[in-house]
């Protein structure tokens, strides 16, 4: 959109001259985050390839949500770097050096990222359609009519066309979450973050949301990072499973490896507890 605001495209002594095709969708290097004395991310390194579907598992309070939140810029890392599609999220190249980025730069990179929350966070004073059309209109400059058409298409995709003019208060939990997913899809983020999107739902409503997630996964174009306790779903859609504990990745690999045949004993203990549960 504004190439001039992107000095990293210029030639010069640039640390990571990515060719956009091969650069990872998300690259985290040495990311630290602590809340007071509570160290949550400890020099975290993480790569997610474009189109890849990564499931993050780990004990409660280990920092899974925090990983997604620093990528969404809801939480600022204490140190380290994060790149999205080859562009630094929190830094700008200035005179060949990495400097903390301004709000404008962050906003530009952030447009590649979307997030779906555990508790939906729909706008209660707007209809389902308005929820979905808002960001395309206001953040992407799309025309109102076009955005509403897009909204209707997305509602169709998540099976909620009849509820276009209903407000969140008139929807069930599963329906709310499907609207929230459609809302996030509307801005076409390259990377979508899903934080336990079925945990707040009644068990009988989990299925309809997982169906929508499967659809997105099958499209194959969107990079997905999912935190979930649905191990069956994880082994079905994940290209890669990451076991996260004590601020670091302690095991990663194919679902068949990490979930079915974990090598690390903390992974074994965690999965044992989840299965028994």
């Amino acid at each position: 959109m504004n190439a001039s605001a992107e000095p990293s495209d210029r030639p010069g002594p640039v640390d990571s001259p990515h060719d956009p095709v091969s650069s990872p969708a998300v690259r985290m290097r040495g990311v630290n985050k602590a809340f007071g004395d509570n160290v949550v991310l400890q020099g975290l390194d993480l790569d997610v390839a474009p189109g890849e579907r990564v499931v993050i598992i780990g004990p409660s309070g280990s920092g899974k949500t925090t990983i997604l939140r620093v990528i969404m810029t809801l939480e600022r890392p204490d140190s380290g770097t994060i790149e999205v599609n080859g562009r630094h999220l929190y830094h700008e190249q200035k005179g060949g050096q990495l400097k903390p980025a301004g709000e404008k730069h962050i906003r530009s990179v952030r447009s590649d990222v979307g997030m779906v929350f555990q508790h939906f966070n729909l706008f209660p004073h707007m209809t389902a359609l308005e929820n979905i059309a808002l960001a395309p209109i206001k953040a992407k400059g799309m025309g109102k009519r076009e955005a509403h058409q897009l909204g209707m298409d997305l509602l169709d995709k998540v099976g909620l066309v009849e509820h276009a003019n209903h407000t969140p208060g008139q929807l069930s939990g599963g329906q709310k979450q499907r609207v929230a997913i459609a809302r996030s899809l509307a801005t076409e983020p390259a990377v979508m973050l899903f934080d336990e999107v079925t945990s707040a739902l009644d068990p009988e409503l989990v299925g309809e949301v997982l169906t929508v997630l499967r659809d997105i996964a099958e499209d194959g174009t969107t990079t997905m990072m999912l935190v979930t306790h649905e191990m069956g779903f994880a082994s079905e859609v994940a290209d890669k499973v990451i076991m996260f504990d004590n601020g670091q990745v302690i095991e990663e690999g194919l679902p068949s490896e990490v979930l079915k045949d974990p090598q690390n004993e903390r992974t074994q203990a965690f999965l044992g507890a989840v299965v028994k549960h």
Binding site: V113, M115, F117, F120, N121, F123, L134, A135, K138
Partner: peptide
């Protein structure tokens, strides 16, 4: 959560305040 959803949708400050 409403502030965070605004950030996640990359809404600018004007939209965030006036619409949300």
């Amino acid at each position: 959560g409403q502030w965070e959803a605004s950030t996640a949708l990359n809404l600018g400050p004007t939209t965030k305040w006036s619409q949300i």
